[in-house]
Design a protein around this nucleic acid. Sequence first.
DNA 1: TATTGTTATACTCTATAACTATA
DNA 2: TATAGTTATAGAGTATAACAATA
Lengths: 157, 157
Amino acid sequence: MPTKTVRNNLASDFPDQVDQSELLGLLGYNIRRTYLVVQSTFDAQMEKLELRQADFAVLSTLRHNPGINQKSLADALAIAPPNLATLLDRLESGGLLMRQRSADDKRIQHVSLTAQGARLHTQALKAAQKADEVAVHKLSAAERQQLKSLLSKIFAA
Amino acid sequence: MPTKTVRNNLASDFPDQVDQSELLGLLGYNIRRTYLVVQSTFDAQMEKLELRQADFAVLSTLRHNPGINQKSLADALAIAPPNLATLLDRLESGGLLMRQRSADDKRIQHVSLTAQGARLHTQALKAAQKADEVAVHKLSAAERQQLKSLLSKIFAA
DNA sequence: TATTGTTATACTCTATAACTATA
DNA sequence: TATAGTTATAGAGTATAACAATA
């Protein structure tokens, strides 16, 4: 094999030799890289339903908390209120949810899924579970539980 | 205490009652929420150095792989080449790194830190380690190692 | 023809300021 | 005065297409 060929491949072969030990020693970097993988797996599974990550989080929360107001929804999902407003506009236009002004306090909007929204949530949940399965298929059930427990210690209030 | 006050606080108190069990049952969502926390902790620590997450990843990789080419750097850090090009432009303008056209293959740029870049990297590493410490302070040393090991099973090739 | 790197561009996500209507 | 929600907008992050230079 000619030396030239080896030299030509040097650039693309280099990645295997890249020393990333410093970055990989940082938990934050491991979480970042894991998030990138999980995110793209999720998006791939959810593509056919035309739902984004935040959309699914909203559908799921509405399914289990019908009539929740937007402030609570925004807080629970860590979405800024202006961004939630436009997200809800879009899902409402698509017939997935309804907003109802509170009679007690007319500032408040109560949000609920429509029947169509509930049906889509059922499908979306399956897709999300499938994405989870694809992303963490290398982990045993015990390891998955362990990972969830460790992560929740970091982000829980 | 008047009933009215309680009713006024209902909206903001609702979050504590929000049922998020479905979302929290998904590992992907746990990783997403953890990433948000870690990211903002990192940004807070790195703010005074005016470095973004990808900037630090580049400085770290250059420190340990001087003369690496942009293709390898892009692959190693999962950054798209056009985005890496502009990122390097910015760091080069700031005097943190140098690009040197390869003599063997004039398509290739070899990238290295300047002395100033190396000094900034040293400070940035301390900030990154501090951010790690702040984010995962609730975890024991054994748990941190365990978490790192579980995460790397998900994102490693 | 294929590869490295660049430019231009667009799209999504996120953050902030200012406004309304209600309380 | 304070809060819920909205509008408008700006910024950062990411992705793609097209190109120049070189192999």
